[in-house]
Amino acid sequence: MQEIKNISTYRQSLKDKILETSMKMFQEKGIRAVKMDDIANRLSISKRTLYEIYDDKERLLFEGVKKFHNIKNEQIKEVSINSSNVMDVILYAYKQHVESFRHTNPMFYSDMEKYPKILKYFDQENEDAHAQFVDFLHRGVAEGFFRDDVNYEIVACMFDVLGKFIMSRMLYQHYTMEEIMSNIVFVSLRGICTQRGADILDRFLEDKQ
């Protein structure tokens, strides 16, 4: 029984290591540039062992994207629960996204367009997150950072469209994420801010210049 438990523990550890290593390689080189052989060689395991755990690259990519997406969401959720105001959450999320893009080859995002299962997953995630985002915006109204004369259901739809536009037009291949966030996202966000909220955004943008 102990031997079976040890095998199970080892296999789970290896599965986690495969996900972590493969995602780093995908982010460094792009998805299409990384073969299953490359992943097996990086981990010093046989290709057969790799395929026993993940039978193809799409499943491996899907599991990796889902895991790391969930980790980031949990981090933002924790910050949201523990933060005293919505502006702290927004600036944390901004820094997180910028840092992630800074260490990711743009080909990773354009390659992902070739995987319908992953695109469908993100579409579903965005649908599930929509109501939460609307609640978040209303929290900002209650805290005095967002205007109270705005239809936030429409605003949430606008930000959904903005995100899809940035990815579909591959703006990340032409501009840094700092430029995209500052010139598209922050400009749109500033429009719903009260003077109190706008002052915080302006100070943040000034400090990072």
Rank of each mutant, 00 (worst) to 15 (best):
V65N: 03
E179S: 11
D56I: 05
L171H: 07
Y51N: 12
H97E: 13
D135W: 01
F68Q: 00
M87F: 09
F108H: 00
S182A: 10
E74G: 03
Q132A: 10
S168Q: 14
I39H: 07
V34E: 01
I118N: 06
Y152N: 03
G140W: 04
T104V: 04
E78C: 12
S44T: 04
H174S: 14
L61W: 07
E99K: 09
S80A: 15
L60I: 05
E179Y: 14
E127D: 15
N183L: 12
K117F: 12
A40N: 02
H138P: 05
Y152I: 07
K117I: 15
M112W: 03
A198Q: 00
F146N: 00
D37V: 08
M1T: 14
E99L: 06
L137I: 07
F204T: 02
S110I: 05
D16R: 05
N73L: 10
R196M: 06
E3K: 03
Y92F: 15
R169F: 12
D37Q: 07
L189A: 09
I192R: 03
T104L: 09
V79Q: 06
D88L: 09
N73R: 13
R32C: 02
K66D: 13
D207E: 15
Q2N: 10
K114L: 10
N126T: 04
V79M: 09
Q124P: 05
K67P: 02
E28A: 04
V161K: 12
A33M: 03
D88Q: 07
V79K: 12
D37W: 02
I71E: 14
I71S: 02
S80R: 14
M158V: 09
D207R: 15
I31D: 03
V79R: 04
Y121A: 12
F145S: 02
R11P: 00
A156F: 13
S22E: 06
Y121M: 15
N183E: 14
N105L: 01
N85D: 13
K67W: 03
N6W: 11
I192E: 11
K208R: 15
D160F: 07
I7M: 08
E179R: 08
S80H: 08
D148A: 15
E78A: 12
D148M: 08
G30S: 00
A33S: 14
K208Y: 13
I192G: 07
K164C: 05
K164E: 10
V150D: 05
N183G: 11
E127P: 02
V150Q: 07
M1C: 09
L50R: 01
